Structure formats: C-alpha cells, structure tokens
Amino acid sequence: MKPATVLLVFAHPDDEVLGCGGTIAKLSEEGARVFTLILGEGITSRQSHREPNLVAKELADLKNSAFEANKRIGVDPEGVYLCHLPDNRFDTVPLLDIIKQIEKYIEKVHPTIIFTHSQYDLNIDHQITYKAVLTATRPQPSHPVKEIYACEVLSSTEWMYPQGFQPNMYSLLSEKHISAKIEALKCYSSEIRSYPHPRSIEGVECLAKWRGLQVGCNYAEAFQVVRRIL
C-alpha cells in the first residue's frame, strides 16, 4: 500500500504539536509523507496594536522553532509552510483568501489526509481555519483529500463551553511517540506555560494519559472524524 500523504493545517505555531504531534511522530515512523501548513504568524495578538516590525526577532525565532519542532515529529523542515496571517485576527481577513491559501498547498502536496482544528475551539482563528479547510476540501471528482480529522488543542478546545469536542477516533501512542511530542513542544519555549496551565508539559502529558485511559492504553491522542471516504 502506498504510504499516506498527510497535511497538517493549523492556525498558529505549536497548534500542530499540541493537536497531533504524537500521531504525526507515529505516522512518520510508519513511512507517511507529512507536510505542515501554519496559517498565522503568532505572537502579535499580545500587542495592543498589531505591529509585526516591533517583534520581528520574536517572529523569526518562532518560525525557526516551528521548523525544529516539526523535525522532531518527523516532518522535513522544507515541508513546513508559514503564511503569516494576523494572530487572533483571522476574522479581519476575507475567508476566501484563507481558503485559497489552503487550496494552494493542497494542490502542491496532494494530501490524502488532513488534520486540523475542531470547529468547537474557543479561539477564533481555530474556528475559521476549520471552516476554511472544509471549504477547500469540498468533495469533487479527483480531489485528493479523503480523510479529515479534527484535533483538540489545549488552552482552546477545553475552554469552549458547553463542551463540543466529542472524540470518536483515538491514536494509540507509545512512550517514544509521546516523548517526541514533548520534545517538539519544548521547541516552542515562548508558548509553554507553567503547570497547572493546560499548555504546559505536564498538561500535555495529563491529556495523553487521560485519552489513553479511555481506550485502555498508556497514551493516546483523540480526534473527531470530520470526513472519511473509503
């Protein structure tokens, strides 16, 4: 069987590791070709007014962190694409422009599988990314994407009330896979928080163990199947 080609489509640097880092380490190990598309620049939402030039060094460091983090879960840095949309301001960008960015990279890599955000996330950029992915992958003859999975991203998915994320697919992870996810997350040092913040190393480990408990293993990542065409 031909190895899968996987495209990760996420809003911010670190979302891809939080959402499916362990699963991507596992798929990469099994021979899948994996590409990462990060739509937003990150960081600038922490400013009172968006001024990327004032945080140019921090943005450059975050870009380098994305390359290194993805490398640790098996993604070639040349397969990591960043689009630099305004952080936490995707609602100021025409949706069609975001859709066209996603379509561009679907055409480039021809993925059969996409991992992306849940529609139930609190973060507005995550919601818009999900909507844009669905539009960019409308089922049509010869369209390459056959499977779409929504991830949970700590400090967004669990903060949406009432809780909407209900997983119906689990990826069982070994110690090696969860370790790769943790090492990748450590590359995003500017994004990690101290426990008990959910976006902490301990928080990520707790979630992986909890999802593992639900399906009888030590570690797991949970997903919602958005579409699966057999």
Rank of each mutant, 00 (worst) to 15 (best):
C83Q: 13
P86D: 08
I124L: 11
V93C: 11
K63C: 11
A184N: 00
V9P: 02
F10N: 00
S142W: 07
L173D: 02
S45F: 13
R33M: 11
A220S: 08
K2Y: 10
K26D: 06
G203P: 03
I182H: 04
A66S: 10
L85M: 09
E30W: 03
T137I: 08
S190P: 10
C187S: 12
L82W: 04
P139N: 04
L27K: 05
F165R: 00
G79A: 14
P196K: 11
C151F: 08
T157M: 03
V204A: 02
P13W: 02
A150Y: 05
I148A: 00
A208F: 13
Q163T: 09
P167V: 02
S174G: 15
P86I: 09
P196M: 10
K186R: 15
T129W: 05
I201D: 05
L62D: 06
H117F: 04
P13D: 04
S190A: 15
E221K: 05
L95H: 14
L95T: 11
E78R: 09
L39I: 01
L172E: 13
G42F: 01
G74K: 00
G22N: 12
R46V: 07
E103G: 11
L54Y: 06
I148W: 00
V17E: 09
A220Q: 05
F223H: 11
V6D: 06
V93D: 05
A132F: 02
H126Y: 01
S171A: 15
K71S: 15
R199A: 13
R211F: 06
L39K: 00
G22P: 06
K176S: 13
G79L: 06
C187Q: 10
A222V: 01
Q119D: 13
L134V: 07
P86K: 08
A25C: 06
K63V: 08
K181F: 04
F35M: 12
P52I: 10
V109P: 05
K209V: 15
I38K: 02
P196A: 13
R193P: 11
A132E: 03
Y105P: 02
V55Y: 09
F67C: 03
I24V: 10
L122M: 12
H110E: 15
V109M: 09
R46N: 12
P3M: 13
V153Y: 03
K209I: 15
P3E: 09
G40A: 12
V80Q: 03
T112R: 11
N168K: 07
Y105A: 05
A184V: 01
L154H: 02
G79V: 08
A208I: 09
H143T: 06
A208S: 15
T36K: 12
S155Y: 06
P94G: 14
V226C: 12
I102H: 04
E58G: 06
L173R: 00
G22I: 04
N70L: 04
K26H: 08
C187H: 03
S142T: 10
I106F: 00
L54R: 12
G203E: 03
